[in-house]
């Protein structure tokens, strides 16, 4: 995989994670119930990730951008909305946490790819 793709994957996930983190921190506050905040954050994160990764996929490839970005949207939206519903969370801090979630999701996807790619035993597929 070329350096440009790796750099693009990292920039895209960090930026999108930060965006979702900031959005979640500004949308939710301790007056919200934790469960609805988590659900709304998760669904909105995945929906926005679909749009983001469709655009970014022009340069990075559709699947390679959709999978980590949607995971970032799901996890960052869910976790940071939950935190914001429990305690007051500054937008900047939300963005930092979101970027960290984006990084973790990308690394998880890379690790899964390393495990899953390659020739498969035929009895284990289909």
């Amino acid at each position: 995989m070329s350096t440009a793709f790796i750099l693009g994957d990292f920039l895209s996930n960090l930026a999108f994670g930060a965006f979702i983190g900031a959005l979640s921190a500004s949308a939710f506050h301790p007056g919200w119930g934790m469960l609805p905040a988590m659900l709304i954050g998760m669904i909105a994160g995945m929906a926005l990730a679909f749009v983001w990764s469709t655009v970014v996929g022009i340069w990075l490839g559709a699947h390679e951008s959709h999978m980590p970005t949607m995971l970032t949207g799901m996890c960052a939206g869910m976790c940071i909305s939950m935190i914001a519903a429990m305690e007051s969370l500054a937008v900047g801090r939300g963005a930092q946490l979101g970027a960290a979630v984006g990084l973790a999701c990308l690394l998880f996807t890379y690790a899964m790819n390393a495990l899953l790619r390659g020739k498969q035993k035929l009895r284990s597929v289909g």
């Binding site: 699947h63 390679e64 999978m67 996807t109 899964m112 790819n113 899953l116 790619r117 390659g118 020739k119 498969q120 035929l122 597929v125 289909g126």
Partner: peptide, 19 residues
Amino acid sequence: VVQSGFKLRSVQNVYLDIV
């Protein structure tokens, strides 16, 4: 592929188990 009557020779994952 199997259901349509083909016999699998190999399956290689290119990206995750998706591509």
